[in-house]
Simulated assay, not measured.
Amino acid sequence: MPKTARRVGVVGYGHLGQYLVDEIQKRSDLELAFVWNRTSEALSGKVPDALVLKDLHDFKDRACDLVVEVAHPSISQSFGPLFLAHADYMVGSPTALADAELESSLRAAATTHGLYIPSGAFWGGEDIKKMADRGTLQALKVTMTKHPTCFKLSGELEAVNDTVTDKPVVLYDGSVRGLCPLAPNNVNTMAAAALAAHNLGFDKVQGSLVSDPRLRDWHIVEVEVWGPGDIQTDRAFHCKTVRRNPATFGAVTGSATYASFLSSMLGAHSKGPGVHLC
């Protein structure tokens, strides 16, 4: 007997949302339940009218197995617990969980369905989570380097980025919790790291954001991990990975991240209640 296709609702129809909608419709194991976008006019002629959801509160009527958010961190704030009451939920903007109250409420709501965090450009997440589970993870730092045009920033970071001319500039170096509200579209990788490294969390995982005008075709993500041993005497487990992600000039999201996100979506099922990396 053939398996029943999983019904997936997509919240957001930007570049990543369009990619996921197209991929879902190509597959026999998935069925598109709905697409919602802040401006439904953007869906006209691109998504069949029957699949356009105009009021997100009506998602319950579409009998979804999985809701995928690729819109904005505010979606989790407004709808996250409600989604989890009826379906699995994959948070495409995990920077939202830098809000400690929201993180707590989503964890509390994931009692029947699973809350899924896509790894995106975060390399080695499962290994880091295993270390966190054992309590052997001592420190974690994620450094993201992009061209100045690839950032969507607010406040002081935006002002500093506007001054970048011919040399790399460190825009931020500190806790991931402090960075997420200032660059919610750029540091989802760091948020995923903070959730994987749950014994450290958003306050103790360190994030560094670098604006490099020479980096026109790439996004670079460095993940540095310290485990068992003595960090002070440099006799602790240490691992550093460097990921060079091809990116269109000025793009917020690197090209390889699209395929990674699709793989995460395909893996976001059957893990039961609780919080899961995918």
Rank of each mutant, 00 (worst) to 15 (best):
residue 115 L to W: 12
residue 116 Y to M: 04
residue 117 I to N: 14
residue 118 P to V: 05
residue 124 G to Y: 07
residue 128 I to L: 09
residue 129 K to N: 10
residue 132 A to R: 03
residue 132 A to H: 02
residue 134 R to L: 14
residue 134 R to M: 13
residue 134 R to V: 14
residue 135 G to E: 01
residue 136 T to M: 08
residue 139 A to G: 06
residue 139 A to Q: 14
residue 141 K to N: 12
residue 143 T to R: 04
residue 147 H to G: 02
residue 152 K to T: 13
residue 152 K to D: 05
residue 156 E to C: 06
residue 160 V to E: 09
residue 162 D to L: 08
residue 169 V to S: 02
residue 170 V to P: 00
residue 171 L to R: 12
residue 172 Y to W: 09
residue 173 D to T: 03
residue 175 S to E: 07
residue 175 S to V: 01
residue 176 V to K: 10
residue 179 L to G: 04
residue 182 L to D: 10
residue 183 A to D: 02
residue 183 A to C: 02
residue 185 N to Y: 06
residue 190 M to E: 10
residue 192 A to F: 10
residue 194 A to R: 04
residue 194 A to I: 07
residue 195 L to R: 08
residue 198 H to K: 05
residue 199 N to Q: 13
residue 199 N to H: 13
residue 201 G to Q: 05
residue 204 K to L: 15
residue 206 Q to Y: 08
residue 206 Q to H: 15
residue 215 L to I: 06
residue 217 D to A: 08
residue 218 W to S: 08
residue 221 V to W: 01
residue 221 V to S: 02
residue 226 W to L: 10
residue 227 G to I: 05
residue 227 G to P: 01
residue 227 G to L: 04
residue 228 P to C: 13
residue 228 P to V: 07
residue 228 P to S: 15
residue 230 D to I: 15
residue 233 T to G: 05
residue 234 D to R: 13
residue 236 A to Y: 13
residue 236 A to H: 11
residue 237 F to W: 06
residue 238 H to G: 10
residue 238 H to L: 05
residue 243 R to T: 12
residue 244 R to L: 12
residue 250 G to D: 01
